[in-house]
């Protein structure tokens, strides 16, 4: 699978990554090589094989509905990039 410049740009956009214009060709090449490696998978017929998400047939454990966390806002926001009045600030969101 060969990815071109515009593929790289659209994937980078979906992943919200700024990629320098000059770096795009190198990414295109590396990503294409990785996808070529990955495509060896298609050589195997996996019809009827159950997908494996985890090593064990374990089921989700359920937690009792108890409030166990206290307010730690000051502690958790100590190193946040931008905070005011307890809110995290971001550039204006237009809806």
């Amino acid at each position: 699978m060969a990815l071109d410049k515009s593929d790289v740009e659209s994937i980078a956009h979906l992943a919200r990554l700024a990629i320098g214009e000059a770096d795009v060709p190198a990414y295109a090449e590396n990503l294409s090589n990785i996808l070529t490696l990955v495509e060896q998978m298609s050589s195997v017929d996996t019809r009827g094989v159950a997908p494996m998400a985890h090593p064990f047939e374990m089921v989700q454990r359920l937690r009792e509905d108890v409030v166990s966390e206290e307010n730690q806002r000051e502690h958790l926001q100590q190193h946040a990039p931008a905070v005011q009045d307890g809110l995290f600030l971001v550039p204006k969101v237009i809806e």
Binding site: A82, Q84, D85, L87, F88, L89, V90, K92
Partner: peptide, 10 residues
Amino acid sequence: DFHGMTGIDL
């Protein structure tokens, strides 16, 4: 009220 910023409450 955040000088052109949006505040996030989680």
